[in-house]
Design a protein around this nucleic acid. Sequence first.
DNA 1: CTGAAAGCGCTTACAG
DNA 2: CTGAAAGCGCTTACAG
Lengths: 328, 328
Amino acid sequence: MKQSKRAGIKDVAELAGVSNMTVSRVLNGTVKVSEEKRKAVLTAVEKLDYKPDLAARRLGGNKSYMLGLLYQDLDISYVSKFLLNALKSSRDQGFHLIPNEIDGDIEKSLSSVVDLIEITRIDGLILLPPVSDNQQIIDVLKKHQTPFVRITPDSHFDLSPYICIDDYMVGYKMTEHLINLGHKKVAHIMGNTKQGTSHLRCQGFVDALHTNHLSAPEEFIVEGTYTFDSGVEAAKKLLNLANRPSAIFASNDEMAAAVILVANNLGIAIPEQLSVAGVDDAQLAVTLSPNLTTIKQPIAQMAELAVKLLAKGADNLKMKERISTAIS
Amino acid sequence: MKQSKRAGIKDVAELAGVSNMTVSRVLNGTVKVSEEKRKAVLTAVEKLDYKPDLAARRLGGNKSYMLGLLYQDLDISYVSKFLLNALKSSRDQGFHLIPNEIDGDIEKSLSSVVDLIEITRIDGLILLPPVSDNQQIIDVLKKHQTPFVRITPDSHFDLSPYICIDDYMVGYKMTEHLINLGHKKVAHIMGNTKQGTSHLRCQGFVDALHTNHLSAPEEFIVEGTYTFDSGVEAAKKLLNLANRPSAIFASNDEMAAAVILVANNLGIAIPEQLSVAGVDDAQLAVTLSPNLTTIKQPIAQMAELAVKLLAKGADNLKMKERISTAIS
DNA sequence: CTGAAAGCGCTTACAG
DNA sequence: CTGAAAGCGCTTACAG
């Protein structure tokens, strides 16, 4: 209470009867320290309420305990929710998160990112879509060899570690959800077949049916391209079938919305005669229609995982992390 | 391009033919340096693309170039907008902003604030409402002698510097706005007379009338308490007047909404027979009714001012800063 | 106006 | 497993 100054590492070392290094090692948990000394250090730390200075740690070592978050528009609910959760996770991990906007002024944006790397020496960056696919940003990060994790990138998946939802499980769970609703005749509108995502979701769909001793006739799986128009085409095919499905699971919400439109035009009542399900993509975080079942992105989990990956250090970065999803 | 390592202050000093100190002084602009050397330094800085390391600056000196922002709920549009603007201003001022949530877990929240002060050694904090009136937080900041600026606090204005809108101008401008609309008979519903804010807005009202060679009869100024109910009472008094006003300026939106309700009940058409104006308080940032003219808080300006005040250092902190407003 | 010295509080090698 | 030394890259006094 009467301490004129905050306790430093040497105060702790003195009280514990060890050297600075032992204190440092106990706190960082990198190297083995004898139980005896470890306890003495911990006790001293507790007693003095010692907290290692962030700047000194950065300057002496090589970790800054700071992470950056690159976003484009904070006003988007997806972004602010991610930020909120990322801030919480960062705090839990003992890191600070510095949000940084990437806007139209790309020169300025790039220079602010470089400053984050060179001046602040952040330990890593999280890129939110659409920054996840900003080649200029990625190039700069690569050049500076800064660890970064991209959230749901659209392409170039091999460029860096990234986090996306588990698309197989998306397909599986949504299909299972429809089956649990009592549906036996479930159809699927695939997304663009050039994207792995589409196939994963479709596989989940097929497997969920199989697990539940059901199967879909060939004509129940229609290819789309994730656009509303392609959804309209696909829906027409499915709903004009002699033996039409009682539920349609579209690979994204745009196509699901198209299904609803077509059904309405055909006088098919939703949800009485047809259940429609979609998947919420990327920044979208709203349900397009009250009659549409959709899968929302588990933003909190993605944020937490992103922070943890970077907090653990660049070495632990795998190329891909998948997150399970919840149906709403 | 081929530099194996980033340029340090000594590299700049060497290139410029001066000492480290001269470089430091030129960059911080604190002390006079001869024009000749200053130019040499600047040239060298430019050539080497020198950027002083943040941690070293913090450790060597006493500024961290980091600010904290305390908020309670990022989902509130007022908060995310403030954050966004504060982030931009911080960047412009060469500071980093670390957002930190204050939630129900007050122990944890307080400790995170203490960490911000003791570990990160931020240079100052911005408190957003309702944190601006959180006594526990304020006590901690006072104890640690950390500079902080409160945004639109509700009370205890002498506890710290704070930023609020210029209430006199709010009253003045809104009244002027109504006069410009052609109104001659403008009434005012004051807010709680125990708060200075109410009197300032009322004075602005009176002065605006006066400047425009108008005046309000005594019964045109009614006291309210900022509540909806008090607005109803006040509106009844005003609208039942034999010579009733053609425009009513209420000191906040709650009371203005009440006026609209009462007018509707009385069969008075808005805006044909009556114009209603209010003031957007604190976190509110939406217009309550399409027929209501309201003054919005200049969030961007407040954020910028808050950052600038803290960036300039504790010495420059005045107790009160006022911001002008815009009518929408 | 300018500089040489010391120090900020940690961590990285280097020894043992 | 543990410690003494040196250094991270700046800035603060202290001199002149």
